[in-house]
Write a protein that binds this DNA or RNA. Structure first.
Length: 426
RNA sequence: GGAGAGGUGGCCGAGUGGUCGAAGGCGCUCCCCUGCUAAGGGAGUAGACGGUUUGUCCCGUCUCGAGGGUUCGAAUCCCUUCUUCUCCGCCA
């Protein structure tokens, strides 16, 4: 969400930012409504001022028992009444138009974000770790999982349709182990506070983080007024909605392990096999709330927190800086982590860390107060996966597979696997 | 799901139609007094928006959970909605 005043004073920068996103300029349209609004407001407020003064006179007249004077004044002001009521109605209409327009505009990218259309224009930042070599043809994760008898898409389809999976035995445990490991790392070493949030939220929460009003089709909605969260970014960020935070409490860092639900509208036919793209998946999410001047540094830090998971799991990955065309709605800058999948013979996204600036803070009305200063300033928010558990399991299976179809449990997960060191057919 | 009671400024808490943006207290800021500390006295202390000016001045409008309505006038009355608490029922 943008500040009207800012657009008024920086209309060129605003349109230039939209252009980088591949969007048409909007400042002229917005400022036209803005001007209409201010003209209208002035007339309305003058009328209201007149009415308020008169009302006080009436109050005084009544208090002093001068009924005649009061009656005369009332008759006088009554004329303004209709104008004010219509004026208030008009004001609401104009505000709605402006809000509808503003709330559907994506955040403007940072200057260093590469301009581009899609993922092909993303910028490689660094590559980390070594890709494992195999003396056999590495299989894809679903072949491994199904051969083990622990990953069952057909059974899932029977009860839930496509894009679901039933994990069992050691693989169900592996999912839990991965989550546990990630949470222990993010809470124990990186300072994140573990949270167990709701996974059903109302529209205003989704509006706050930017999924609504524009991306409703990506969400699952209940028969009531709830939506299933597409990511824990939503509940974690909304923890601070409508809050004024004392400066000393920043930064705040939250992490949560939750299921995520996505309709995957528009991605029919993509990644139809396996666990890469599911309607439901588990994820450990990180959210930071910071002061404006520290948010860029926080993004580097958060990305590092996500990378650490991959490093300790011994997985090779690369860091991509997303181009303007590939970034999400609320992001100013985004780093994707892409893990190496030998079965697929390619890198696949496993984490996405974004700094949103004050974009979400404005929508949620989240501010912080500096001691001794008047008023509040909007906080900056960040979110990132640390990591997507389902895809991490995919990566573990493909990278740690053996010629005989078994899978070695990575060293750091062993404490969580209850003695299982190799996952194999019993 | 049924019955009832609330949501007021950074916090606590008065206020049931007329100079109420709101008593009082706490906290905070400044000043005075007191040779540290403690205590005391005085003043100040919401935000958004608009106008004006770009001078951190002034004026106006709106905001007492949110949104409508009644009225010349609403924190106060009516409707809708969100939310908190208590009791009952149901339940993992």
């Amino acid at each position: 969400m943008f500040d009207l005043k800012w657009i008024r004073e920086n209309s060129e920068a605003f349109d230039a930012g939209l252009a980088k996103r591949g969007a048409a300029p909007l400042s002229i349209d917005i400022l036209k409504i803005d001007e209409e609004r201010r003209d209208h407001l002035k007339a309305l407020q003058d009328a209201q001022a007149k009415r308020n003064t008169a009302s006080k006179e009436i109050g005084k007249a009544k208090a002093s028992g001068d009924e005649a004077a009061a009656a005369a004044a009332i008759a006088e002001v009554a004329k303004i009444k209709e104008f004010i009521q219509n004026g208030e109605e008009t004001e609401r209409e104009i505000d709605e138009r402006i809000n509808a327009l503003l709330s559907s505009i994506p955040n403007l990218p940072h200057d260093d974000v590469p301009i581009g259309n899609d993922e092909d224009d993303n910028e490689l930042v660094r590559t980390v770790g070594e890709q494992p070599s195999f003396d056999f043809e590495p299989k894809e994760h679903f072949d491994i999982g199904e051969a083990l008898g622990l990953m069952d898409f057909e059974t899932a389809a029977k009860m839930s349709g496509s894009r679901f999976v039933v994990l069992s035995g050691a693989l169900a445990r592996l999912e839990r182990a991965l989550a546990q490991f990630m949470l222990d790392l993010q809470t124990g070493e990186h300072g994140y506070t573990e949270v167990s949030p709701p996974t059903l939220v109302k529209a205003n929460a989704l509006y706050g983080t930017g999924q609504l009003p524009k991306f409703e089709e990506d969400l699952f909605k209940t028969t009531g007024d709830h939506y299933l969260i597409p990511t824990a970014e939503v509940p974690l960020t909304n923890i601070v909605a409508d809050c004024i935070i004392d400066e000393g409490y920043l930064p705040r860092r939250f992490t949560a392990f939750t299921p995520c639900f996505r309709s995957e509208a528009g991605s029919a036919g993509r990644d139809t096999r396996g666990m890469i793209r599911q309607h439901q998946f588990m994820k450990v999410e990180m959210v930071s709330v910071t002061k404006p001047e520290l948010s860029d540094a926080e993004l580097e830090r958060m990305t590092g927190c996500a990378e650490e998971v991959l490093k300790r799991l011994g997985l090779s990955y690369r860091v991509m800086k997303l181009c303007t065309g590939d970034m999400g709605f609320g992001a100013r800058r985004t780093y994707d982590l892409e893990v190496w999948l030998p079965g697929q013979n390619m890198y696949r996204e496993i984490s996405s860390c974004s700094v949103c600036g004050d974009f979400q803070a404005r929508r949620m009305n989240t501010r912080y107060r500096v001691e001794g200063e008047k008023g509040g300033h909007f906080v900056h928010t960040l979110n990132g996966s640390g990591l997507a558990v389902g895809r991490t399991m995919v990566a573990v299976l493909e990278n740690y597979q053996q010629a005989d179809g078994s899978v070695v449990v990575p060293e750091v997960l062993k404490p969580y696997m209850g003695g299982i060191e190799i996952i194999k057919v019993d």
